[in-house]
Nucleic acid binder design. Sequence first.
DNA 1: GAATACATGTAAAATGTTACATGATTTT
DNA 2: AAAATCATGTAACATTTTACATGTATTC
Lengths: 183, 183
Amino acid sequence: MSLEFALLGFLNYQSMTGYELKQFMDVSTSNFWHAKQSQIYTTLKKMEEKGFVTSEVEVQDGRPDRRIYTIMPAGQNALQAWLEQAVTDLQPKKELLLLKLFFSSSVDKQTLLAQLHLQRGLHQQQAALYKTETKAIIEQFAAIVGNSQDALLWDATRHYGELFEEMTVRWLDETIALIEQTE
Amino acid sequence: MSLEFALLGFLNYQSMTGYELKQFMDVSTSNFWHAKQSQIYTTLKKMEEKGFVTSEVEVQDGRPDRRIYTIMPAGQNALQAWLEQAVTDLQPKKELLLLKLFFSSSVDKQTLLAQLHLQRGLHQQQAALYKTETKAIIEQFAAIVGNSQDALLWDATRHYGELFEEMTVRWLDETIALIEQTE
DNA sequence: GAATACATGTAAAATGTTACATGATTTT
DNA sequence: AAAATCATGTAACATTTTACATGTATTC
């Protein structure tokens, strides 16, 4: 359901293919929303049946044909209604690392510490990515679109990713220290 | 898949019913792992077919019968192997609020601020819950089990929830301030 | 008298992942 | 010569949610 609105959100800026939608998601919303290429294609098909989008095939030579999707008024209305509707509850999270940690009292101390150090590296790297590359990409998009409100909101979501990763690194450091102190 | 291990993790402490597993999850791992009652029942059935658990029906009068699940050696081995296997990648997240915010440049300033304030309240409340009730429940469980390593790990996962909620509140405050400054 | 807790489960639908299939062009 | 990019899609599978169905005992 939400994926439909994410796709409508992108198509509301400009018409594009499923392949391009995947690329845009990967560099902008992957921080808080993602989808596999195959799911994007099947979802676009359903959206077309609903009348939210239309598509046209662009024949190319030497390249596979492209199916370009365009948002329809019904899609724009659905998008706007969704945007205006508040999120009234907390979203349940799933964190595999935490689930394992919860049940890990039987795991050897060194094994556990190695797992946490591995994760620390990944989150540290991700924090750095949000501060540099992601920031640059978003600024570039904002310059093209030229809407300062878009720029502000896009950077707010990027900053969330940065804060989240930094918090996770701090928590991992604390947790590593706690485990190191055990017998 | 991960739900199977979560259930094995609980059953490794003591045998119990699907109903009880749901209750334990709700007060301990809901912060980072959750499941609906119906999914727990269907998953337990699959686990029994695999030989990870066995079940026995306890007949009750005046109450519906209870099906009590017990972990089997195959289940204990699978659990231990899963615990020892490191999480080698970052888990992709989904945050509905962020997705909406990303596309919300067309949303009226007051509507948007109201949505963010609503979320701030929810996250603030959740942070308080982790610091008080959740902390008390975990300490109580730890006292019963009497294993200090369990107590340490359980509190580490609880603390993650606390840090996450506090970070979210800070980010919401910053974002609200940014949006208020716009024309 | 109504709502909640106890306790189980099935069926259907929605959502998401993995694997398969094709084939030219461009980069390493 | 191999791998990645471009570009689409289907099929099968796995996961998750929602809705339905049942019925007693206890609490408000």
